[in-house]
Amino acid sequence: MEYILIIISAVFVSNIVLNQFLGICPFIGVSSKVETAIGMTGAVTFVMVIATLVTYLIYQSVLIPLGIVYMQTITFILVIASLVQLVEIILKKISPPLYQALGIFLPLITTNCAVLGVAVLAVQKDFGLLESTVFAIGNAIGFGLALITFSGIREQLDLLNVPSRMKGVPIAFIVAGLMALAFMGFAGIV
């Protein structure tokens, strides 16, 4: 039950994109087509879950015993950067089709603040190993939900006659604002 609550709260109530403002760059940058949005979601889910798991283990078994918690930021970003490289190499070897699909998105993920953000949040919230993993999965689903829905809306938006000054990014932000407003309706369910 506790795990279900973590997932619902991560997906709907405090959605990582629309409520926490993490991962806005890919949210605006790669959301013009549903297909690329799905690819990005896959890559982010993959990296986010593994990264949260690995950073949790490193935080608990290296940083705390050595008393160097202040090295958290440097350690986490290095772990994420090398993890992305590793995932890329492994994926290339064992699953070329998946690599083809996710390939171009992987390098972008190093600077996706959602991945580092979730890793830091999981530590801040004092989650255990299983809770952290569930939290990462929930946030990845939330990211995918926001990104894919938003890209669907943007595809439709291309067909509309938007005033020239609002074309492109400005109207995208206003749409995102309305989506965030809708997501506020979930507040209080957990």
Partner: peptide, 20 residues
């Protein structure tokens, strides 16, 4: 609304329109 999350998106969207 403007200090809640949706307001951030809306305010930036309209500021971008102004910039354009």
């Amino acid at each position: 609304l403007f200090i809640l999350p949706p307001g951030a998106f809306l305010a930036l969207g309209y500021l971008l329109v102004l910039a354009n």
